[in-house]
Design a protein around this nucleic acid. Structure first.
Lengths: 210, 210
DNA sequence: AAATGTTTGTTGAACGTCCAACTTTTTTAT
DNA sequence: ATAAAAAAGTTGGACGTTCAACAAACATTT
């Protein structure tokens, strides 16, 4: 059984704080339950236990379990996007260097954790079988593709290259998704370092740098 | 509700035939139930209904539901491997041409069907949360990597090239897995043709043909 | 004291497993 | 070759469990 995540800040007092805290707890609890037990093993009980609340509280914040799943997907996707963005912003370099740096961010902590990988796999499954989750994921996915596409466009402009930025973006996302999911199951087949190498190799060739 | 698949051959008579027929029916029923309802929606009832048998029969052929899942993964993986192998054997060409042809096989029917894609995603999820399925998948995956690696080795030898065949194989598998799973959710984001193009593009660059 | 947040109790439906009765095929005895 | 016995295959209901959703009671903040 998952134990509730230890809270760093002290327990919130006002209603506004409580609302935010509980919603976040429940969403994070859902992610941890999904990562631990999978889709079929995740129930309202396991989510609430992981969130450190009682069984019934979920109904206070979400109308249905599906709604929690949507919120969990948006939260996970948003957190990862934010972490990637922050890491790349911190990394001060050209557009080419930033693009090249991206796989390192994707395949190291705090993005590349067992929790994130496994929860992502479970939610990916949900995306196929849960209409609400699918709709939410489609939009997130579209935006993700656009962001990567823009990175390729910027890098190509820097190099004075003409490339098919969309195809390049789709390819890179496919490679990294494939490695993310493959690695989420078989840690012993590929290491994170190899994954980074494969992705960087892809970028290098797409930008004709070799 | 899924209707049982229409049988082409007439009803089997001998015990040996019946055993084979029923086992296959149940495994295919499991795949169709997984593709239709996902992991959480697949029950002994849905499997047996899809297989055209009564609820109780599953216990006669498999000790547990998990055992059916393992059999379903092995069956699906085996069927796809066989179809790819047959398509490539039929295609009479050099090792380079065969490798180049592989994505076309992976991303067109009868390999690239909604049933196969969706069942595969569901089983991939199972692989993470079901020990028996994970063990089975690990071996299947290893063999798959080795086969693709050998194709790259053969192609490189033909071209008089020195390449990292294993990394090339892992990369191609990652791309195609990513596209398979991405496409199985969002048909409108990428088409099969684009997926083939992206994979062939990867192979071309790995073999330094551009 | 009113509103909001939270826990606990209840309900009906659906689940997987088990199993006793039934049908069909195969073996044995004549 | 035929009939009886045995084995194998199949069915659907009973059982105990678990679930999501609902309802009611309790606690805390405003």
């Amino acid at each position: 059984m998952i134990s509730p995540k230890s809270t760093k800040k002290q327990r919130p007092r006002t209603h506004a704080e409580i609302n935010e805290y509980r919603r976040k707890s429940l969403v994070e609890g859902a992610l941890r339950s999904l990562a631990e037990y999978g889709v079929s093993g995740t129930t309202v009980s396991t989510i609430c236990t992981a969130a450190g609340s009682s069984r019934g509280l979920l109904g206070h914040y979400f109308a249905t379990k599906d709604e929690v799943m949507v919120a969990a997907l948006e939260y996970l996707f948003g957190q990862i996007s934010l972490m990637v963005k922050e890491s790349l912003d911190k990394f001060d370099g050209t557009a080419v260097e930033k693009l090249h740096q991206m796989p390192s961010v994707l395949f190291t902590a705090p993005v590349f954790t067992q929790l994130n990988r496994t929860a992502f796999l479970a939610l990916w499954h949900e995306t196929r079988f849960n209409d609400q989750v699918r709709v939410a994921n489609r939009q997130l996915y579209r935006n993700y593709i656009l962001r990567v596409e823009r990175m390729f466009t910027a890098a190509a402009r820097e190099l004075g290259l003409k490339i098919d930025a969309r195809r390049a973006a789709l390819g890179l996302i496919a490679v990294s998704d494939g490695l993310w999911l493959g690695l989420s199951i078989h840690d012993d087949v590929i290491t994170g370092e190899q994954a980074i190498e494969i992705c960087q190799n892809y970028i290098t060739r797409e930008l004709k740098l070799d």
